[in-house]
Design a protein around this nucleic acid. Sequence first.
DNA 1: TAGCTCGTTGGACAA
DNA 2: TTTGTCCAACGAGCT
Length: 470
Amino acid sequence: MSHSTAIVWFRRDLRLADNPALDRARREHERVVPVFIWDPDAEGDWAPGAAGRWWLHHSLAALAERLDQRGSRLIIAAGDTAEALERIRKVTGADAVYWNRLYEPALIERDRKLKASLREQGLVAESCNGALLFEPWQLVKDDKSPYLVFTPFWKQMQKRWQAPSVCPEPRQLDGPARWPASLALEELKLLPEIDWADGFGERWSPGELAARRRLEHFVDDPVTDYDAARDRPDRAGTSRLSPHLHFGEVSPRQVALALDEAGELPRGKGKLSLLREIAWREFSWSLLFHHPHLPDKALKTPFQDFPWRDRADYQDDLKAWQRGQTGIPMVDAGMRELWTTGWMHNRVRMVVASFLTKNLLIPWQEGAKWFWDTLVDADLGNNTQGWQWTAGCGADAAPYFRVFNPVLQGEKFDPQGDYVRRWCPELAKRPAKRIHHPLADGERCGDYPRPIVDLKGSRERALAAYQSMR
DNA sequence: TAGCTCGTTGGACAA
DNA sequence: TTTGTCCAACGAGCT
């Protein structure tokens, strides 16, 4: 170990355990300066949305507390990253900077330049893999080109499976002789000014310890039924790990380790199912890495001419969708769950996305943007990939004739109507048999809205639109 | 290379 | 009420 000081630049790896950048800095240097820099301009159109900022605020608070307990502290800065690092370096005399890689196209470019510039100044600058089981350039086909279909990607991942190893959590961290100034967390103004996020706190506990508890709880029992239960929005069958994974409060390696059966691929159906979801996350990041325009442009080029409705024409319908006022119970329940809790059940995400793109013929980018702002787990890889998949223009996409019917989906996956009743209390008194159906002509139910489109007619319109493109 | 198989998550309709 | 078939064609991926 050299008698030197290293900056550990935290980004979306807000944990102390299995943090390769932190681990490496600590092993190779005597003193460590943990730093977080709020620099949303660097992320272009994809700086964290309002829900993500709420989470980030609380996650940073949790990280700062854990660092305090280890004799360290979290230095918070804002503004241009290179300048902030330079300031901190001057005060602390640090001669090395470590971080874990991110894969958003804009950030890859920023980080590449930064690394080159730091090295030019004679500093150590190293990035590590803290976010993925496999780097996007590792899991490729035999001819080195990236996968475009999930199943072969998943098969390859299983073939190359090895017992995950994680790095240890430091018990103590020695700081620099002189600490740099830090902003107070509140100065980043990450929390919304209106009390919009009130419901989030009831549902979520950001931070590494909460993430670990959730993982341990889930793997202890619920994972056994995950394969089937994960499709039921009326039950708590999913892991709810997504925001923790997004902010790096838990790593996919830690999840894999928790599922691991003596170094072998998990054999239990539920465990394998959860691992497959982790694989989807990896697949999404791989796609984005190899196709940097994915957040804006359809992967399948014919879709760039798809006859979406005009913006002026769909504005009212888009608002109704965002507010959960479409008059389609399953759709409204999902959109209200999203608004209230910053999260939506995966199956319902597909239903509302299919409804927006197919029944309303509104471009998938509008949905992706709304999700980006309102989901606490908004993740550029997953969000982009999911929306393109539903719209039928992405990798391995749903065929054009696959239009989800929100009534049938409700009857199948929310059979008692509990989910709809919870989020659309106006409908609470409707009999379970009718609860997923839009109001019929002349029927009234509190101030629940009439359907903004006819499901059958709009389905046919969508099929015709998709036909026209072929 | 050429040929074969397959593609996360569905719905409508006929029998 | 349940089950089977069709709704496209194409290109990815594998052997």
